[in-house]
């Protein structure tokens, strides 16, 4: 931490005019693949550092941090609300692979955003605003972006079916969902920049001004624009809220905002398709997390119990299959 304090201190003049060092460095979250730190410059600028922990090699689907930073800049250029990237640090720098961004005021806890009274006013326009912001992200020109994976519904299904088969779990609802979705997989006509994790919980929302920043770009890729809309509507991210879009809004408002901001029209049916794929994907992830308990890699009660959340995704899948039948 002392080394990091020094390394960031040396960057201070680039981070804020008149700054000479940094203060108040503290770790915010303990993600396995990514560290998040908060600090201020001595001139008072509130900042966030996202850094890859030293010694950790690339994790699964996550893009390099420099790519994340480039995508945030590209989204900002289209008018999407994002933090301002102030410095990008190379893997061999004193800070390590990282970037520094402005600290945006607001709330990210999904439950508060979906249900708490201080957010009642901004909730009314939030689904529409999410539609507008997704249209802006999907409008980012893909030429000139750092290399990104391309994925379609078919390739996503292939990936998660392999994960499920490997688990040797026999879950008829997953079987039905895989069958249903594979038979109806939309073709990927024109891949756009997809955020990949655009959901309640990764959106910074201010009780007065609404959507303040779109965070967590590490799963960004090129793909079907409806993927982002469907993931935002996936039941697992409603946090007890009663409405389909993130627990806070309606499909119609999301789609209206998307189209009003210039997004190519997306049929509700296609959003529901990706919503179902989202539940299936999260269900497979719950099984994967349980598998780390079963293998002994993480013997915590939390890893064991998360396997019992798979059934939440299954009940959502049954509801969607019934609606589609």
């Amino acid at each position: 931490m002392n080394d990091l304090q020094h390394a960031l201190g040396a960057l201070a003049p680039d981070l804020s005019p008149g700054a000479t060092t940094i203060v108040g460095l503290r770790r915010l979250s303990g993600g396995a693949s990514q560290e998040t730190w908060a600090f201020e410059t001595d001139s008072g600028a509130p900042l966030i550092l996202r850094r890859k922990p030293p010694g950790v090699t690339g994790s699964g689907n996550a893009v390099p941090l420099a790519t994340e930073a480039a995508l945030i800049n590209a989204a900002a250029a289209r008018g999407a609300p994002v933090p301002r990237v102030l410095a990008i640090c190379a893997p061999d720098s004193d800070v390590g692979e990282a970037y520094v961004m402005s600290r945006v005021e607001g709330e990210t806890l999904g439950k508060r955003i979906a249900r708490d009274p201080p957010f009642a006013e901004v909730r009314k326009g939030l689904a529409r605003r999410c539609g507008e912001v997704l249209a802006a992200i999907h409008d980012v020109p893909t030429e000139g972006l750092p290399p990104l994976a391309v994925s379609s519904a078919a390739t996503e299904l292939e990936k998660y079916e392999a994960v499920y088969r490997q688990m040797d779990a026999r879950r008829p609802i997953f079987e039905a969902a895989f069958r249903f979705l594979k038979d109806r997989a939309p073709t990927l006509e024109r891949p756009v920049l997809v955020h990949g994790d655009f959901r309640n919980g990764n959106l910074m929302v201010h009780p007065d001004t609404g959507l303040a920043a779109v965070l967590d770009w590490e799963l960004a890729h090129l793909g079907d624009p409806a993927e982002d809309l469907g993931w935002l509507c996936t039941s697992s991210w409603r946090f007890g809220g009663s409405k389909p879009v993130g627990g806070f809004g309606d499909h119609e408002d999301l789609l209206a905002g998307y189209q009003a901001a210039g997004g190519a029209p997306i049929a509700l049916e296609r959003v529901l398709y990706w919503q179902m794929l989202g539940s299936l994907k999260w269900g497979c992830m719950c099984l994967t997390m349980y598998a780390s308990y079963a293998s002994g890699a993480d013997a915590s009660v939390e890893r064991a119990m998360i396997g019992r959340r798979t059934s939440e995704t299954e009940i959502d899948l049954v509801a969607l299959l019934e609606a589609a039948a």
């Binding site: 039905a176 969902a177 069958r179 059934s311 039948a325």
Partner: peptide
Amino acid sequence: SPTDQALLAHLHASI
């Protein structure tokens, strides 16, 4: 079929 009514009735009750 994943939309077979008898199948869905079973999955519905079980889940």
